[in-house]
Design a binder for these strands. Structure first.
Length: 271
DNA sequence: AGGTTGACCTGGACGC
DNA sequence: TGCGTCCAGGTCAACC
């Protein structure tokens, strides 16, 4: 489901609702693959903690926790493809596929719901701050950005999706930024010119900023913490538009597979 | 080490 | 209506 703009929208929405609350009780579903730390460790770390801040790092939602008489900690939520974080009154029935419920000091519940179970919950304790696996696309400079792809033999689309290079970009924003930069998805990352990489850097930052402003892309069921859909899907120029005319030149958009993912591009506008 | 592929899951859309 | 097939915003282990 969610890439950087969607995760940022969720993190901001959750922050506005739970910041400053204390976690009084924690329930977990017992579905093992949902939990990257053990459920025992998650319950022990979260119970009694105060949520200081909710923010995004890459595609991960990070909750900074303060705990009286204990080391600070962080609660990491990765939404996978279908994960959602909901803040609800306790009398509202739990949706199907609810995997964790945090009872908060204001009486509400923070719920993690994930039908496909590709999402992951984990905790970190101590003062080390989570920085994610790669570079942050919204703040990386053009110079750092082009340096990331030096000597890389893989396709630029696959490189954009590789979270240990750049974290936060997924299938939608990879295709959308490559279209806006006029670059073919299968071009070898290490062979792009400095000028092309500078253009791609600009296109990516612009597309991410606009998507964040519009609350992300609601392609199927993605909604923010309040159940509100995003609107960036109205700005998709290639994603999910294979076979339709290119918005710029009118030729038919092509669908190929790159890095194991469906990829759409314009054979005329992208070189 | 860098790069590629398939497995992990459920549910919605589509065709017959 | 129902059943089968395909597809989906993401990782990650296991290969080459």
């Amino acid at each position: 489901m969610p890439e950087l703009p969607e995760v940022e929208t969720v993190a901001n929405g959750v922050d506005a609702r739970v910041r400053g609350r204390r976690i009084q009780r924690v329930w977990t579903s017992g579905k093992p693959q949902t939990f990257k730390s053990t459920e025992t460790e998650i319950v022990a770390t979260l119970t009694g903690a105060r949520i200081e801040l909710v923010r995004r790092v890459g595609k991960t939602i990070v909750m900074d926790l303060l705990r009286t008489g204990r080391k600070p900690a962080q609660f990491l939520v990765h939404l996978g493809m279908t994960g959602r974080l909901l803040v609800s009154q306790p009398e509202v029935p739990w949706p199907a596929h609810t995997h964790a419920v945090l009872s908060l000091s204001d009486g509400r519940e923070l719920r993690f719901v994930d039908p496909r179970r590709f999402g992951r919950l984990s905790v970190l304790t101590g003062t080390a701050v989570y920085h994610g696996p790669g570079k942050e696309p919204t703040t990386v400079s053009a110079d750092e950005f082009s340096h990331l792809f030096k000597g890389r033999r893989l396709a630029i689309k696959a490189a954009l999706l590789n979270q240990s290079i750049l974290h936060g970009v997924g299938n939608i924003y990879a295709d959308e930024s490559l279209f806006r930069a006029g670059i073919r998805p299968r071009r070898q990352a290490g062979k792009l010119t400095r000028a092309q990489l500078a253009t791609l850097h600009g296109a990516l930052q612009q597309v991410l900023a606009q998507a964040i402003e519009l609350g992300g892309s609601s392609v199927s069921d993605y909604v923010d913490a309040d159940g509100v859909r995003g609107f960036f899907q109205l700005e998709h120029k290639v994603y999910s538009r294979a076979g339709q005319p290119c918005i710029r030149c009118g030729s038919v958009l092509k669908k190929i597979i790159v890095g194991g993912r469906t990829t759409v591009y314009c054979p005329i506008c992208q070189h």
